[in-house]
Simulated assay, not measured.
Amino acid sequence: MNSPMLMNWNQRTRELLPGFVVSLIVAAAAGFLSEHYSAPVMLFALLLGMGLNFLSSESKCKAGIEFTSRTVLRIGIALLGMRITLDQIAALGWKPVVLVITLVVVTIAVSVIAAKIMGFQRVFGMLTGGATAICGASAALALSAALPNHPHKEKATLFTVIGVSALSTLAMIVYPMIANWFELSPQAAGIFLGATIHDVAQVVGAGYSMSTETGDTATVVKLMRVAMLLPVIICAAMITRLQGPSSTGKQPPLLPWFAVGFLLLACINSTGWVPVVVQGGLNELSRWCLIIAISALGMKTQLKELASVGIKPILLMVGESVFLVALVLMVIHWWF
């Protein structure tokens, strides 16, 4: 007789398999096109996924696409730790750390002020600023749970998640072009991409579409931004305690597990004890996890939904992104 746990596992597998298989097929097609046309596989995966956007609303594929775009993505990012050593992080020096802290504080502060000037509540500026400055939709959801209750908080959170996901997808395509136009070095390009693109997946896609060095640097800088989620959420929690009762929903983790996994694997890799064969195998597994996940992210992209929320919130988020790009380029020019 099958145990309840085994039955639940089998049911969950059947539920997730269609969406995962579709994402896998799109990733394989992207790999084929990349090999034959010498273009970035991440970009092919994203565009092919967007072409199959209708599948994300199919009941049979929806759960699997959601799982692939979140869990498989995070597994791939955690495994990227096997590409990084603590020596590489140290080689970046103290400047990127100071850069990341400054960017997060300044961007959130400017976003809150801009939101107030445009007639929005401060909570909306905090959500959009945090999503832009830290780690996209994950930061928006985490901040939403930590901020004080507000009648329009749920709507603001929904728009922020949709808006930052769409802008991050666009940034994955456009920002490498900006890096090439300014003739940034591989490391400077990595710092630029890691410090400006909203979501981790698109940072990885944009970085490794340029070069391995750029991708490695962008990933490290981006995870520095992700780590800033901890102090920002602590500040949001303090605001909550001062202004009203805490959220009744489940509190999100202060630091995403994939960032912790990335750091642990980087520490293990830094020992030099990992065999080259194992390291290569895990790197290839990580690469395919990310390609498959970006295929699913493409299928989830719903740009048409932005049209229903009006122009002012879109202008605020676009303005925040442009401000962040200009600030990072200025700092790179004068400081790096």
Score class of each variant (00 low, 15 high):
Ser3Leu: 14
Leu6His: 10
Met7Pro: 05
Asn10Gly: 13
Arg12Glu: 15
Arg12Tyr: 14
Thr13Arg: 14
Glu15Gln: 15
Glu15Tyr: 10
Leu17Arg: 14
Val22Gly: 02
Ser23Thr: 07
Leu24Val: 15
Val26Arg: 00
Ala30Met: 06
Gly31Pro: 00
Glu35Phe: 07
Ser38His: 15
Leu43Cys: 11
Leu46Lys: 10
Met50Gln: 05
Gly51Arg: 11
Phe54Glu: 02
Glu66Pro: 00
Arg70Asp: 07
Thr71Arg: 12
Val72Asn: 05
Val72His: 05
Ile75Gln: 06
Ile75Trp: 09
Gly81Asp: 02
Ile84Gly: 02
Thr85Ile: 03
Val104Ser: 10
Val105Glu: 02
Thr107Tyr: 12
Ile108Met: 15
Val110Leu: 02
Ser111Cys: 13
Ile113Met: 15
Gly119Asp: 11
Phe120Met: 03
Phe124His: 04
Met126Phe: 14
Leu127Pro: 13
Ala131Trp: 04
Leu141Gln: 10
Ser144His: 09
Asn149Ile: 12
Lys153Leu: 11
Ile162Asn: 13
Ile162Pro: 05
Val164Cys: 10
Thr169Val: 08
Met172His: 02
Ile173Pro: 01
Val174Cys: 03
Tyr175Leu: 15
Trp181Leu: 13
Trp181Ala: 14
Ala188Ile: 06
Phe192Met: 10
Thr196Met: 00
Gln202Ala: 01
Val203Thr: 04
Val204Pro: 00
Thr214Ile: 13
Asp216Tyr: 03
Thr217Asp: 01
Thr217Tyr: 01
Ala218Lys: 04
Thr219Met: 04
Val220Cys: 13
Val220Ala: 12
Arg225His: 09
Arg225Thr: 04
Ile233Met: 15
Ile234Met: 15
Thr240Trp: 04
Ser246Trp: 05
Thr248Arg: 12
Lys250Phe: 08
Trp257Gln: 13
Phe258Asn: 00
Val260Ser: 01
Gly261Glu: 07
Leu263Asp: 05
Leu264Asn: 04
Ser270Val: 01
Ser270Pro: 05
Thr271Cys: 02
Trp273Lys: 07
Pro275Asp: 04
Leu285Trp: 05
Ala293Thr: 00
Ile294Glu: 00
Gln302Leu: 02
Lys304Phe: 06
Ala307Cys: 11
Ser308Lys: 14
Val309Arg: 06
Gly310Asn: 12
Ile311Ser: 06
Pro313Ala: 06
Pro313Leu: 09
Leu316Met: 05
Met317Arg: 06
Met317Asn: 12
Glu320Asn: 15
Val322Tyr: 03
Phe323His: 09
Leu329Asn: 05
His333Leu: 13
His333Val: 08
Trp335Val: 14
Phe336Leu: 15
